[in-house]
Design a protein around this nucleic acid. Structure first.
Lengths: 198, 198
DNA sequence: GCGCTAAAAGCAAATAATTTGCGTTAATGG
DNA sequence: CCATTAACGCAAATTATTTGCTTTTAGCGC
C-alpha cells in the first residue's frame, strides 16, 4: 500500500503527483484502459517510470488513486424542498453516474486495488452526501431514515446491480427510495447537544 | 475476453486448463496473491507461459476464472423446515463465506476482470440458491418474496459492506432477512402452469 | 534566509514478464 | 483413418519492472 499518504505535500513531489494523475486522466480519455501502461503514463507525465513504480507500486493502485478523486462528489445534493425529493434526485444522479461506462470503470479500479482504503473513501463520500440530505430533512422537521438504512436500502442495491451485470432501471431506483422512506416512519434522532430531558 | 468459452472441450486442452487451475489454487494457498505471476503458474502447472497468455490474456482473467469456480455453490441450501429458517441459515453461511479473506479475494478477482461474464455468473449462482429456497417455500404453501427483493434487501447490502470495507455483523444480517420477509406479506406467485381463471 | 537531513526523483543496468513467429501435437469431424 | 485446424511448445524479440546509485529539493532547526 504505497499510495499518496505520508508523502511530502509540497513542491516537486506534489507536482509529480499532479502530473501523473493528469497523464492518467488524459490517456484514459483516448485509449482503452487495457493499453495504458506505466511507461506510457510516465512518458505522458514527463517523469521516469521508476518514480511511479516506487510511489504506487503497480498500475492498479495508481488507477484506484485517480479513480477515487474522480468519484469525490463535487457539489452539494440539490435542495428540492423535501426529503423525498432530495433523496430521489440525488439517487437518480448517483445511479446515472455510477452506471455510466466511466463510472463503472472507476468503481472497478477502486475495488480491484489491493489496498481497500480507496473503497472506504468512496463509501465515506456517499455517506456524507446522504448525511447532508438527512440534516436538511431534520432542519425542516421531516423524518429521515438512518444513513445505514439508506446505504442498505438504496445505495447497496444500485451498486450491486452495476457491479454484477444488471443495469438498474430508473423505476427500480425510485422504488428503492420509496421503500426506504416508507420503512422508517417518524423516528427522528435528537441532536447530540439536546438536553437529557424529553 | 479470451477465457474458456469456445475452446476444445476434451483431451489435452482440458488437461491443460485443469492443470493451470490447480496450479493457481495451489499457489494461492501458500503465497501472497501479489507474488503470483503467470510464469510461476506455468511452471507449477507444467505448461509454457505463452499457453496461458494466449488463453487467458492476463493474470486478472485467469484469477477471475479460477475464483468463479470456487464461488460456485457446492450444496443445496439447508432445509430447516421453514422459509425464514432456510433464508436465515443460507444468508449467514453466505455472509460468512464472502467476508472471509478468501471470499473477499475471490470476489475481488471476479470484479477486477475486464470481462464481467464471471461477475454475472456469481450473481446467477446466488439467484439459483435463493430460487431453490423460494420453491421450497411455495411447495410448503409459505409466502416468499421475489428473488429480486431478496437480492436487493439481503444480498446487495452484505456484498456492498464487504466490498467497501465494512464487515456486516450477524445481527445486521438477521435484520436484513427479517425485513425482507416482513415487507412482502402474502403475495405468492402462481405457478406458470396454472389455468388463467382465478 | 542558510545549511542539514533525508525523502523523493532521475538514470541506467539488470532482471523479469509479455508478445510473437513458427514448427509440432492432437482433438474434432467426415 | 485421414484431413483440418485449434491449441500447444519453444525460442527470440520486445517490453515492463526492479534495483543500486546519484542528484535534486522539501522540511526543519537555527
Amino acid at each position: 500500500m504505497p499510495a499518496k499518504e505520508n508523502l511530502r505535500p509540497g513542491g516537486r513531489s506534489a507536482r509529480v503527483q499532479a502530473s501523473v494523475h493528469n497523464a492518467v486522466r488524459s490517456l484514459l480519455k483516448t485509449m482503452d484502459r487495457a493499453d495504458v501502461t506505466i511507461p506510457l503514463i510516465a512518458a505522458e507525465a514527463g517523469v521516469t517510470p521508476s518514480t511511479i513504480y516506487r510511489r504506487w507500486g503497480e498500475l492498479q493502485e495508481l488507477l484506484a488513486d485517480v479513480a477515487v478523486e474522480r468519484l469525490r462528489p463535487d457539489m452539494l445534493p440539490i435542495d428540492t424542498g423535501s426529503a423525498r425529493g432530495d433523496l430521489e434526485v440525488w439517487t437518480e444522479q448517483y445511479c446515472e453516474e455510477m452506471s455510466s461506462g466511466i463510472g463503472r470503470d472507476m468503481m472497478r479500479d477502486v475495488l480491484a486495488a489491493q489496498d481497500n482504503a480507496n473503497a472506504c473513501k468512496c463509501d465515506a463520500f456517499t455517506r456524507e452526501q446522504i448525511a447532508l440530505i438527512a440534516e436538511r430533512a431534520h432542519a425542516r422537521g421531516e423524518a429521515f431514515p438512518d444513513i445505514d438504512a439508506v446505504m442498505d436500502g438504496v445505495v447497496a442495491p444500485i451498486i450491486y446491480r452495476i457491479l454484477f451485470g444488471d443495469q438498474p432501471s430508473i423505476e427500480r431506483v425510485r422504488d428503492l427510495v420509496t421503500d426506504v422512506l416508507a420503512r422508517e416512519p417518524i423516528r427522528q434522532p435528537q441532536p447530540a447537544s439536546a438536553p437529557i430531558s424529553g
